[in-house]
Design a protein around this nucleic acid. Structure first.
Lengths: 146, 146
DNA sequence: TTCCAGGTGGGAAAAAGTGGGAAATTTTGA
DNA sequence: TCAAAATTTCCCACTTTTTCCCACCTGGAA
């Protein structure tokens, strides 16, 4: 299970270390995609197989005939990349993904159970700030949903 | 699986490199056709067999009886070309296809799972911009289609 | 205070992208 | 029908980017 928050720097070659704690649970390669709320999702290849497999079986044999599937697949697959974890545990963030979430030098790597999320540090802090107050309200809501 | 986005230049002989990551999954030849939404589809020869077979026999063994299929298939098949990947991994874009999608110097090559798409860079950016917001709505829709 | 694990940085080698010359082929016009 | 011109194809070479590997630094633990 991937948990915890780690702050690391991107070097000038766009490499960022996967925190050692995460590294053990992720194999040799990972898949990076744009996530929701302006962050990147990092999946293990297994998890990616599961996600993309679940989605493609909804695609018909000729998925390009449907507009909604074209839009969806272009955004999902077109913006994903498989990257190798280097010998000392770093991954390379492609420029177009870096730009997409406004990532500069400082990144927050966050374990969210089955995936890792990468945030630019300022957006991460802002997000935590903004959602902190909601937390207890959401808890109440979850409790009453029972 | 073909994923990711790569920006490359066409040289003045209309050659564009297939990104190395794609090259490994595509054989010696590919088929290029006009795609949908103002891009080109690039299929491996295998994938092309599958796609063209499925289209030819769509709905009936005698697709030429339907006007809409005649229109669609004439555009798809009539404008398709098989091109060879050269010794260092480039493909040649025929002029009429280049013109069809308004391709100038800068091209985006996008992996969409089972095919590669070629876009003129400005149209690709515009398309992503315009469709990004739809993505989560389509995701919800796909999820509820179960 | 020394050792170790993890993070940071950078050099060198390899791979990939870009451009262009020359041979081969096709087209054109006499 | 042939020769000249133009286009296409094939290959080579240069440049840039990426990858791989090594070394250093830092902070925490023994």
């Amino acid at each position: 299970m991937l948990i915890g928050e780690y702050i690391h720097r991107l070097d000038e070659k766009n490499r960022v270390p996967l925190p050692a704690k995460f590294r053990r649970e992720m194999g040799k390669n990972v898949v990076i995609t744009p996530g929701l709320d302006n962050c990147l999702f990092v999946f293990t290849t297994n998890e990616w197989e599961r996600v993309s497999g679940a989605l493609t079986h909804k695609n018909s044999e000729l998925s390009f005939l449907r507009r909604d599937l074209r839009v969806f697949n272009r955004n999902l697959f077109g913006q994903a990349t498989e990257v190798e974890i280097d010998s000392i545990g770093r991954i390379l963030i492609p420029n177009f993904l870096k730009d997409k979430i406004g990532l500069k030098e400082e990144a927050a790597l966050v374990g969210v159970g089955d995936r890792v999320e990468i945030w630019s540090l300022p957006s991460w802090k802002k997000y935590l700030d903004e959602t902190e107050k909601e937390q207890s309200a959401i808890a109440e809501k979850l409790a009453s949903d029972e």
